[in-house]
Amino acid sequence: MRPLFFTLGLMLAGTAATADDDVRRAHYNYQMFCQGCHTPDGSGAGDVPRLKGQVGVFLNSQAGQEFLVRVPGAATSALDNEQLAELLNWIVREFAGASIPANWRPYSGREVGALRKQPLKEVIRYRGQILADIARARH
């Protein structure tokens, strides 16, 4: 029995280390590709949109969920699909706070790979439209 517990313990420790690595990699990718403009705590600055407490609002509609992948900074980033999905999920969990909807479904590499093939050429007006649609659906 004892070796079994020992093996189980080792397996659990292995899983924990991998999950921890994923978080560290996502945070590092945020620092390298996002933080320069969105700032370390996601507050944004000047014309740079605020992620903190806000980014989850987009996840209330399909177009909004797609928007976060199709914005140029995400869609055209140097990250592969899996790491981009990991980073987007990290951003949502780290910064969305109360704005995250209860039924949110995290991004998968496959979903991200399909969406980033249609990067947005015009962002600001489309963003406003998505947020207006979400606000209207809520009332």
Partner: peptide, 21 residues
């Protein structure tokens, strides 16, 4: 400036890469 460009540099003393803003 709160908006900045970020990269990594290799520290020859401890042999590690650090994120620099």
């Amino acid at each position: 400036s709160p908006i900045t460009w970020i990269g990594t540099c290799h520290n020859p003393v401890d042999g590690r890469h650090y994120v620099i803003s």
